[in-house]
Design a binder for these strands. Sequence first.
DNA 1: AATGAATGAGTTTTCATTCAT
DNA 2: GATGAATGAAAACTCATTCAT
Lengths: 195, 195, 195, 195
Amino acid sequence: MPKIGMEPIRRRALVDAAIAEIGRTGTLDVTVSQIARKAGMSSALAHHYFGSKDQMFLSAMRAVLNSFGTEVCSSLRGLAGHKERILAVIGACFSEQNFRPEVVAAWLNFYVLAQTSPEARRLLTVYYRRLNSNLVHDLRPLIGTRAPGTARAIAALIDGLYIRQALREENLTGAASVALVSSYVESALSQEARP
Amino acid sequence: MPKIGMEPIRRRALVDAAIAEIGRTGTLDVTVSQIARKAGMSSALAHHYFGSKDQMFLSAMRAVLNSFGTEVCSSLRGLAGHKERILAVIGACFSEQNFRPEVVAAWLNFYVLAQTSPEARRLLTVYYRRLNSNLVHDLRPLIGTRAPGTARAIAALIDGLYIRQALREENLTGAASVALVSSYVESALSQEARP
Amino acid sequence: MPKIGMEPIRRRALVDAAIAEIGRTGTLDVTVSQIARKAGMSSALAHHYFGSKDQMFLSAMRAVLNSFGTEVCSSLRGLAGHKERILAVIGACFSEQNFRPEVVAAWLNFYVLAQTSPEARRLLTVYYRRLNSNLVHDLRPLIGTRAPGTARAIAALIDGLYIRQALREENLTGAASVALVSSYVESALSQEARP
Amino acid sequence: MPKIGMEPIRRRALVDAAIAEIGRTGTLDVTVSQIARKAGMSSALAHHYFGSKDQMFLSAMRAVLNSFGTEVCSSLRGLAGHKERILAVIGACFSEQNFRPEVVAAWLNFYVLAQTSPEARRLLTVYYRRLNSNLVHDLRPLIGTRAPGTARAIAALIDGLYIRQALREENLTGAASVALVSSYVESALSQEARP
DNA sequence: AATGAATGAGTTTTCATTCAT
DNA sequence: GATGAATGAAAACTCATTCAT
């Protein structure tokens, strides 16, 4: 019997290598060979497992989004307070894991990919809807009809900070980003309180 | 008689075509031939004028940033009130001209280019510094030490909304974007007012 | 207990699958994997049994030629009349079994293979010589020196009709083909009869 | 001004080289590079002019069929006698030009191509229909209802002899082939004459 | 015996770039 | 100034074949 069960291992290795290479070079113009080499195998094997470069990129994108989604879910587990939950989502966006420069750089490139690839766009839309509905869900009890606009602003802030991180802006840490977005949330919520 | 003074015309045509094609396809993966064809000339001529594809892209980027800079300047002319000036800058970001989907899509791709090309990064940094210093200059008198953070947030909001526009998000107009960012500015300023 | 005697079964399955795939696609550009999959095994096993793709194709060719040879032999068994025997050979060429479109398409491709592979050419030559000698043997007593030319014409007619069948020409049945060739034979023989 | 008007020259050179290479190797498995090298240029240029390998092959096929068609036309010019015209068509099939082994080998491969490529099949069908209608047109006045069957037989004979030629059968000359087919025509016509 | 794993060699195709005119 | 011609270099993808188990 042959060596068996390599597929998931290889796929995982390729996906990781793809993210790393896209992140490192900051472009989707990485060759399958580069990625495969980084993952320790031949480009032929990469094609064997993914069928095409596009499929590999989409898998990489799914991995990034899933990782993000998982982190959000586990952050939310057990939290009941609305504001608490909102801050947890924001925290997940800028967590150690998700806010690594190369992951964020890959993220930026996936935005670009989404202009070309309908499937990539779909993935991004799903992710965005989920983020949005999470935020609106917890904002509505606090600020009512202003919830959707505020959610949109939070999402935009996050994306904007991601761009800065992708550009390796100095002095931009996850903590600073969280602080910035949180402060926006505070002011948005407090506004409601005022007469 | 030789055609004289064609150079600026040709260059302009190529730059416009480059922006249009990058915006239309949503990717930097456009060929020189495509761009040259759209500009009504041969790809050889494009090389003649720009030396290389990269230089052409950089010129296109400069054009976009200049167009933006010019618009900001003319918006600011004659305005004295700090808040007024801040809102003018924001308005320029989402003006008819600058917020066209294809321009914004090109913009997003220039962010990506900046990861690879030091010159592109330099251009972006210059632009960003100018935007930032404009904002800080007018925020400081109003909110003091909170000015830098707020400026950063405004810039991030703008970039985040640009990404949404690049993705052709429905119901996202320049006016709505201005409203969203302005509302953030309002709340940031009003916060100061509180004891 | 080890499966015993699998070899001939596997080989037969592969040969059949090869003929079917070549016939189906109408080209030698079928992959070993395709054939192996159709035969219900891995491509590695196909190599195990045949050593190489070329050998597999040659075996497939041998199978087709053998099947044909066997059918001719059994058709001729017990037949004594010269004309009767000639018609029997012709009948075998267009029998249900041999004139199936996919077999004929494979046949056409074996002609092509024979241009490249000496062994394939040898097989085809052997088959052709046998067909020819069969025909000449029975034609000579009937038409003397005109036998070789007539045999060649009969063979050419058969090949020509095979090409039509490979192209899936409509209204071309085995029976119609037999009729056409037989009619030629009739006229060739009757010519002799004339003064 | 650039060197101009190379396109038809290059295309012709490539088509000739394609026919020669397909004929020489007896297979469609020739690479674009091989063909381009033989035609004295880079494979990139071949793609520039033909867009794809398939298109190049189709052009080669068209060239072969056109050459044939032209020769038939010029052979028929001025001939009025039905039998005379039939023999002229047959003569064209086996002319010095058309019956060159490599052309015939290419021809055989085009039959194979026609199994895969609808356009190739279309070309072949057109050619075949024209040949057939030429023959029937001149046979009908001579043998009435037997014309279609006889035409089909003549076409099959020609194709069969082409296969032999593609296999480089010894002692098979154009003249011998003409003789063989002509003799069939004679016997087919004389049959009618008999009571 | 049997197969999943793995790859080297090769093929088509694309494209920025150069050149001769 | 302007362009058709031309190509080298590289990329995605394929596949026969080998190997370890």
